[in-house]
Write a protein that binds this DNA or RNA. Structure first.
Lengths: 234, 234
DNA sequence: GAGTGGTCTAGACCACGGA
DNA sequence: CCGTGGTCTAGACCACTCA
């Protein structure tokens, strides 16, 4: 199991501090040569490191050392920017598309709507320190938030909800699974199809208990660590 | 991107119901031939399916269709058996080792102990419908649970805590990240090094707010879906 | 003992990134 | 335009599973 040894040897170098976060690894051909193996085996080792969350790739640009993940507490309502800044990270959000459309299967399922109901669909990419880390799709009920698309929600939707519609979240139902980035999501996050991802689905309820919106977040899995505290009724 | 097409074609067969959960895929060489490609490319496609959580492998036995994941709510105190049975699954727990030892770095960090403090260490494997799905390591403070190892905790530790020590969890601090199964963990779960995993670390506090134990759970990532509800203070 | 999966080799071509 | 990563080929050997 040569590729495990190669992986361990690179892990050692990372932990010894010889490789810093965001730093690029040497070219695959050079690494392969230095470990006296072929590119195929070397890439096996790199994939392992990627799966462990220690390195990440940028499509056709190479492999880089992963920075510390962002702590994400799904039981809090803080928005992305606030959360990132509290952890000394620089957040950025890029709006990809915002449109009024008809609910697809996924949106209908999450929001309990009839298929083909009207719905707003907003796609955004979240950055941490200029690295794209998450692709977020939001589906929003237009009957609750009429003319939402006229506002500036590029940074925070929850701010717009609160300030212009007096809607605050009362609760969120969330689901976390692992999957991969594919197609346009992979491209938007500057990576290749098949990159491991953490998927967070959230269904948001307003103060009246109505399902008002949902978010599907695809995170590069090395960029996030879910952390929270659960208190139990005695 | 041939391997994405192969993957899609297998996904199609799964979703059409032609392949049932737990069913074995044909041999790699046969699949490769039927898609008119080499084993290397075919395995690329299989790894993608594994990363998506649609198939899983058993070491040297082959590839199988993943069953529905278990819903796991980290904000509840229910034990594994109860949780599994509530979802019509057959749980089983196998005790690997239970010993009194000195805290390693990980245990000391999680429980806030001095290095080399005395600690109990218990390793178990959790099964669902006879499939090994999680490797769980528990570190437990012997000053809170004296002579714990004399009891039968093979099934549920929390039951023993409650019945014999009158300790109930008041809260749990948890952390969820993705990583891989390596070495003996991979072996215990009947798979190979590098299999994607969901890691759940829990630090448990008793009714007095003391850190009494912690668990590190390595789940096959396709076997689990984290689901919960968060209520917000207004 | 046949067949299988796990691992590895030694190449190749292409399209894209960056200088 | 060079070097790079992304993808693919056509094999090979070994250790293990399972009939």
């Amino acid at each position: 199991m040569q590729y495990v040894k190669i992986k361990d040897s690179i892990v050692e170098q990372i932990e010894a501090g010889m490789l810093c976060p965001r730093q690029k690894l040497p070219a695959e051909r050079k690494l392969a040569e230095s470990f006296d193996t072929t590119r195929v085996t070397l890439r096996e080792a790199l994939s392992l490191l990627e799966a462990e969350g220690r390195i990440y790739r940028e499509d056709r640009r190479g492999w880089f050392i992963s920075p510390e993940p962002l702590c994400y507490d799904p039981t809090l309502t803080v928005n992305f920017s606030t959360m990132a800044q509290a952890q000394n990270r620089i957040p950025k959000t890029q709006l990809l598309t915002a449109k009024s459309t008809l609910a697809n299967k996924q949106a209908a399922r999450l929001l309990g709507l009839q298929p083909f109901s009207d719905i707003y669909c907003i796609d955004r990419v979240r950055y941490l320190d200029d690295r794209p880390v998450a692709y977020v799709t939001s589906y929003i009920r237009p009957d609750i938030f009429p003319n939402l698309l006229d506002f500036d929600f590029s940074d925070s939707l929850t701010d717009v909800y609160r300030e212009h519609f007096s809607v605050r979240y009362q609760k969120t139902r969330y689901r976390i699974v692992t999957s991969t980035l594919m197609g346009e999501m992979a491209q938007a996050l500057r990576t290749t199809s098949g990159t491991p991802a953490m998927v967070i689905e959230r269904i948001n309820y307003d103060q009246n208990g109505a399902q008002v919106s949902c978010d599907i977040e695809y995170w590069r899995h090395d960029a996030i660590s879910i952390e929270s505290v659960a208190e139990f009724a005695q």
